[in-house]
Design a protein around this nucleic acid. Structure first.
Length: 644
RNA sequence: GGGGGCGUAGCUCAGUGGAUAGAGCAACGGUCUUCUAAACCGUUGGUCGCGAGUUCGAUUCUCGCCGCCCCUACCA
């Protein structure tokens, strides 16, 4: 409802300014900083003051006096140096909400299919806290997009033939003297968690390689060669490991409510010759060239910046360019990524086959790419979001430049690097983990997570700890309930604490992970938001059947009115979160709404309210807030428990 | 060297070309025979890194400086 009131006001003012002053300024609609300033604040007068050469305050006053009546608006007021403050007609607004009429459609919804690629964990070790941030961001963005009506396809790319899988394969073969059959036995052993096992093994191999660079190059190269060509036991070993670890990752992500539609794998990109197809296009259109001299001699190279005279001059500078095909003829990761990106837009002229990989409890089927199998309409998106940390923005730019160099300007413009900063470990966190830091490292604000060094917080360990702590709280409050009930609530609380923690930071903030903060259920947390919704539900349940309120007079009370207006902004906030690609905006909103509800809860004892009209109204308000809060939380991937 | 990001309360973070810069945590002091205190109320706490410029107005935009982080591989 908020969106439609907002656009109604904006349209009315725009039309008025055009006829009255022949002016078409940008109409910015703000939230006033204080409630006495009304429900909307417009700042066009400041901008208009320049062209009209009149004081902004005068302009605002004139518009306030002369603007034709706008339905739903009770009062206009010039204020401050030149604001136009807008006051809604409270009972009309409430009546619109009560009638259940729908709000305006958010303007941030792109047309056509949207692909969101996220998670993308190398299948050679357990998922860690950084991967959880990626998945939480991606999954929340998907939920919001779907919430406003977009068609979204979620892809989780599996680099099953890459260096990292190769390293673990070398680890099994050379450090553990295990073959594919041995590892298969390991997987069926319920005392072993392969993802954890490989976490340690990967760190060991990395160390083993660091000790001898030549050995590293030889062993890694040989393993990679076999894995890429699907040859022998080594390739089978890689396949067995990658598959098992993908299953582990999916299980971990399912614990926090993250699901996917498709797992495209690098092996199919190789075997179905996606790269060869892309290579052809790139060569034909001159997007890459064969370098005959300098340090990149013998490579196929893309000019790092093909626009502008300065760039042309520096194009000879080998450092400014990006190697796509190495001098030994193998393609780099970015090359494969260009091919994959082309496929996502349906521009490759080639596609995968698919096979069902698993079915989620809700019946949704997760597909995996295959060389043979069923056809499907995956890919062919109008817009693509790649959720990848900010360290890869250079490479993401190369991919987009590749599309542009091929003439796909529209698709290049619709390739979005959904960038975010990494999760690092605070020095205190390292201490908690028993990690010894060098003197220099101890002075740093945070320490980078490193799979290579086995340095990090494993996702499942963190989720386990959260579940234990939540369960202890639940048991202390609901000792009489059965264990299954207790565990379910604990799981919902743990998930909420984790997701909210990962989402409340804006994307370009490095999270210095801290156990005390991540494990908190108090203050600005998911459980706090859930608690408010549970409280509201408790009141409604105890009140029993309730009719719609006959009167909305109580809205004369500013506190009640502000709670109602805020609660009505869920969709508008989701829209804002999409426009800025910033899920934190919605998390912040959910917290604010929960906070306002808690204040309301303490000020108004609904069930003992003696005035029946007021009681009915307060009950309705509590119900409305509960519903809106639950909606916001649902988009954040957070469930409202039955009890807390 | 080049490119990008960050610097706001003791700590962790929001925020905006404008109306008295906000929240959580921490600290201190109050609220439970209750619609469950995972909550609420109050107090303490800020030269919005430093300097200049643009502007009627800058914490917000521009430039310079200082500090920290990331990227700049024929790794992914």
């Amino acid at each position: 409802m908020f969106l439609s009131y907002q656009s109604r006001v904006r349209d009315a003012v725009r039309a008025f300014l055009k006829t009255e002053y022949s002016a078409e300024p940008r109409i910015v609609v703000e939230q006033p900083p204080r409630p006495e300033f009304g429900d909307l604040a417009l700042t066009f007068a400041f901008e208009l003051a320049k062209t009209l050469r009149r004081p902004p305050r005068k302009i605002a006053e004139e518009v306030a006096a002369k603007l034709p009546p706008v339905p739903g608006v009770a009062k206009l007021e010039a204020a401050g140096a030149g604001y136009l403050n807008v006051f809604f007609h409270r009972s009309a607004y409430a009546a619109d909400l009560l009638s259940g009429s729908s709000d305006s459609t958010p303007d941030a919804v792109p047309a056509g299919k949207i692909i969101v690629e996220h998670t993308n964990i190398n299948p050679n070790k357990a998922a860690h806290i950084g991967h959880l941030r990626n998945a939480a961001l991606g999954d929340t963005f998907v939920r919001i997009l779907r919430g406003v009506g977009s068609r979204v396809e979620v892809q989780n790319y599996i680099d099953n033939t890459g260096v990292q899988v190769g390293d673990v394969v070398v680890g099994f073969e050379h450090l553990e003297h295990k073959n594919a059959a041995d590892v298969e036995a390991l997987i069926t052993d319920h005392n072993v968690r392969l993802d954890y096992y490989c976490w340690d093994l990967y760190a060991r191999v990395s160390k083993y390689f660091d000790e001898d660079k030549a050995r590293a190059a030889d062993l890694r190269g040989a393993a990679l060669q076999k894995i890429e060509h699907g040859e022998g036991d080594t390739a089978r070993l890689g396949e067995v490991v990658a598959r098992a670890i993908v299953r582990a990752h999916l299980k971990t992500m399912a614990r926090i409510g993250v699901e996917y539609d498709l797992l495209p794998r690098e092996s199919e990109i190789l075997h179905l010759k996606f790269w060869e197809q892309a290579f052809q296009q790139l060569k034909e259109r001159g997007a890459i060239y064969f370098e005959t001299e300098g340090k990149n001699k013998g490579c196929w190279v893309m000019r790092a910046d093909s626009s502008g005279a300065e760039a042309a001059e520096s194009a000879d500078d080998a450092d400014a360019n990006k190697v796509i095909v190495r001098s030994n003829g193998t393609v780099t990761y970015v090359g494969k990524d260009i091919a994959y990106q082309l496929w996502k837009f349906g521009l490759l002229g080639r596609s995968f086959r698919y096979t069902p990989f698993q079915t989620y409890p809700d019946g949704r089927v997760l597909w995996m790419s295959a060389t043979e199998g069923e056809s499907h309409d995956f890919g062919g998106a109008a817009r693509v979001y790649n959720v990848i940390d900010s360290r890869q923005s250079y490479l993401q730019n190369i991919v987009v430049m590749g599309l542009r160099a091929l003439g796909y300007n529209e698709q290049a413009a619709n390739s979005v690097h959904f960038s975010y900063e990494v999760v690092a470990l605070s020095p205190r966190c390292c201490k908690d983990l028993g990690i010894e830091l060098s003197e220099d490292d101890a002075k740093r604000p945070y320490i980078e997570v490193s799979g290579r060094k086995g340095l990090g917080v494993k996702a499942d360990d963190l989720i386990d700890t959260l579940n234990e702590r939540a369960l202890a709280e639940v048991v202390s409050r609901h000792a009489d309930r059965d264990p299954e009930f207790q565990r379910k609530i604990a799981r919902q609380i743990a998930t909420s604490a984790l997701r909210f923690f990962l989402l409340k930071f804006t994307r370009n903030t490095v999270i210095a992970f801290d156990f005390a903060e991540a494990l908190s259920f108090d203050g600005e947390t998911g459980p706090y938001c859930q608690y408010a919704a549970v409280r509201a539900a408790n009141i409604l349940r105890k009140a029993g059947e309730s009719a719609a309120p006959s009167s909305t007079e109580a809205l004369a009370d500013n506190e009640l009115w502000q709670l109602l207006v805020l609660a009505s902004q869920t969709l508008a906030t989701a829209n804002q979160a999409l426009q800025s690609s910033e899920p934190a905006v919605l998390a912040k909103y959910a917290f604010e709404l929960a906070q306002k509800f808690n204040t309301f809860y303490h000020h108004h004892h609904i069930l003992s309210e003696e005035d029946p009209a007021k009681r009915a109204f307060l009950l309705w308000l509590a119900g409305y807030v509960r519903q809106q809060l639950a909606q916001a939380l649902d988009w954040l991937g957070i469930e409202v428990p039955e009890a807390m």
